[in-house]
Design a protein around this nucleic acid. Structure first.
Length: 589
RNA sequence: GGGCCCGUGGUGUAGUUGGUUAACAUACCGGCCUGUCAAGCCGGAGAUCGCGGGUUCAAGUCCCGUCGGGCCCGCCA
């Protein structure tokens, strides 16, 4: 080894020891005959002192060193004199007096600062990702990620799970996200698909009798990107046999608690046990199937209160089967007209035609709707939302899905604005009883809300022929601070039920055979009852690391246009490669 | 497919209603300096304002297009 100690590990107890260090020049302070170098490695930073009088050769080398040079330093650890200690540095009680300094490798001046985390244009960070990763923020995040994955393995191994790998080159299926596809050289005109998740394979592992499986699995989906969505991402994928929904939720709840207790002592779990909301409840109370439960400000239904109102906005909405709902923002009654108008921009993208407000001020109630409402209606609204003087009511009147999306989003914006979303609070929750199916207007057929292997709640099979939209799934989402961090279900394990499901989805027997024949057949050989879940590791770690984008917890993420700015991917391939793969490029006009 | 925001020395920013040599901090280079830890002091070099076109006597500033980055809608079983 080129080093005997890590820079960051040196403490008073090492005083007097001869050490060899190796690392990067973090900062350098040149006093002429005396040079201080903050030497950095993975474990941290320690101050190296090079003195021209006692170590002239070392001093000459240190004089040439610049930021990010790679140095090896031989020296003696010394307790810093009283008054020269640095309380801001874990190693600040000591320093290393160098007697020999070697430049292992020089460095060009980096394109941005390594030594602090001040913001830098993200495209530049991504182009020089290997330098960005040297910075404290990314080091901290990727180290945390390692520990999270490690603790997941520890926990699941202790609970008798087996880690089993599944292939990346699999078969394209029509349901779900757009597949990434890999051309086959040996089979002209045929393609593999990269997995959107190992869903079918893990179910087949259950048929195979492994009973408890997990995998830290890479998943790939060719869809547009977001702060919380990358074309490739990592899931903790897990499946269990002979279980019911309750068993899965309990295992995962235990896993989350394990992770937080082991790794996040500064964070608090808000609710234990985790609350469970039905999908319907989540949508009506929070306008979201992934509610942030760190704060209240719930949606309040005013539809019945204003049903008889002469106010056109309300009357029209109600007569068209719409809803009138609001959120009460405490202490916001003094918002200016301009501020209130700006809030509209948070509901418009979701299709809301406008945002009504009602401010309960000292001097009375202010609202653009006031002159259209009777005093009795205003009073009834006030009572329904239990407004105090100083509160602001924000109202959306529209179709239920628009009201939910608009107010659900506005609630988060107001929660942020009032500082109600404490990053040190973890509000884990379960959302259960998702609908099984949802009507797709474009395709004019029912599609699976979760996926086509999800089992309905048994008694809801009765609705299959009469009202499939009402069927509830044995599906559950894991929700944390307003993010969906996981989802799973109890699966169908009987081939006749699976066939029935395909029928509901408008998939013919021939199609089902062609696309899912392997799983239908497998289910005829004693498939055990089973179910599972997948957790988004990137999202989970992002929340744990107080980041708002999963790019900050991935080593080499892609831009929102799905490019890798460091590698320059995607890129063209050679004529030769195309020929081998039997491919021809046809560009759009 | 659509909406919004951003692009000025290496980096981060400023740049009024369009008006002379584009400012500041930091980094970089040189000099001085033995106790700094955001070291300090002195000096220097460095941007034609993402790119293209247009309006104008005059464009970093206004308009159109385009490229790149970000946020969102659609999409994401």
């Amino acid at each position: 080894m080129l080093k005997t100690h890590a820079c960051g590990e040196l403490r008073l107890e090492h005083a007097g020891q001869e050490v060899t260090l190796a690392g990067w020049v973090h900062r350098r302070r040149d006093h002429g005959a005396l040079i201080f170098i903050d030497l950095r490695d993975r474990e941290g930073i320690v101050q190296v002192v090079v003195d021209a009088e006692n170590a002239p050769e070392a001093h000459a080398v240190a004089d040439r060193a610049r930021a990010e040079y790679v140095l090896q330093v031989h020296g003696r650890v010394r307790a810093r004199p009283e008054g020269f200690r640095n309380p801001n540095l874990p190693t600040g009680d000591v320093e290393v007096v160098a007697h020999k300094v070697t430049i292992l490798n020089p460095s060009k001046t980096p394109p941005f600062y390594i030594y602090d985390d001040t913001p830098v244009d993200e495209s530049l960070r991504l182009k020089y990702r290997y330098l960005d990763l040297r910075r404290q923020r990314m080091q901290r995040n990727l180290i945390l990620r390692h520990h999270v994955v490690n603790e997941i393995r520890q926990y699941l191994n202790a609970h008798k799970f087996l880690e089993i790998e599944t292939p990346l080159l699999i078969k394209s299926t029509p349901e779900g996200a757009r597949d990434f596809v890999v051309p086959s050289r040996l089979h002209p005109g045929k393609f593999y698909a990269l997995p959107q998740s190992p869903q079918q394979l893990k179910q087949l592992l259950m048929v195979a009798g492994f009973e408890r499986y997990y995998q830290i699995a890479r998943c790939l989906r060719d869809e547009d990107l977001r702060a919380d969505r990358q074309p490739e991402f990592t899931q903790l994928d897990l499946e269990m046999s002979f279980v019911e929904q309750e068993d899965i939720l309990n295992i995962i709840e235990g896993l989350y608690i394990h992770l937080v207790e082991k790794l996040l002592p500064h964070k608090r779990i808000k609710f234990r046990p985790f609350p469970r909301l039905t999908y319907e409840e989540a949508m009506s109370r929070y306008g979201s199937d992934k509610p942030d439960l760190r704060f209240g400000m719930e949606l309040v239904d005013l539809t019945d209160v204003v049903a008889e109102s002469k106010f056109r906005v309300f009357a029209q909405t109600v007569s068209q089967g719409g809803q009138v709902k609001g959120i009460l923002v405490p202490g916001a009654a003094n918002y200016s007209r301009k501020e209130l108008e700006q809030l509209e921009s948070h509901v418009k993208p979701y299709g809301a035609k406008g945002l009504l407000w009602m401010a309960f001020r000292e001097e009375g109630i202010r609202s653009p709707a006031a002159k259209h409402l009777t005093p009795g209606e205003v009073q009834a609204i006030r009572e329904r939302v239990q407004a105090q003087t100083g509160d602001l009511l924000l109202i959306v009147a529209d179709q239920p899905d628009v009201v939910a999306a608009a107010l659900g989003n506005l609630r988060l914006v107001m929660g942020d604005r009032l500082g109600l979303r404490d990053p040190n609070e973890l509000a884990f929750a379960w959302v259960v009883e998702f609908p099984l199916l949802e009507w797709d207007e474009e395709e004019a057929r029912w599609v699976a809300v979760h996926h086509p292997f999800t089992s309905p709640i048994p008694e809801d099979w009765a609705l299959a022929d009469t009202d499939p939209g009402k069927m509830r799934a044995q599906a559950y989402d894991s929700v944390l601070n307003g993010w969906e961090v996981g989802g799973g279900s109890i699966r169908i394990h009987r081939s006749e039920e699976q066939a029935k499901m395909f029928e509901l989805l408008g998939i013919t027997q021939e199609q089902a055979q062609a696309q899912f024949g392997h799983i239908l057949e497998a289910f005829q050989y004693g498939a055990p009852p089973h179910g599972g879940i997948a957790l988004g590791i990137d999202r989970l770690v992002a929340i744990f690391a107080d980041e708002t984008s999963i790019r900050e917890v991935m080593a080499f993420p892609k831009t929102t246009s799905a490019q890798d700015l460091m590698l320059g991917a995607p890129s063209p391939i050679s004529e030769e490669q195309l020929r081998e793969l039997h491919l021809a490029i046809v560009l759009d006009e």
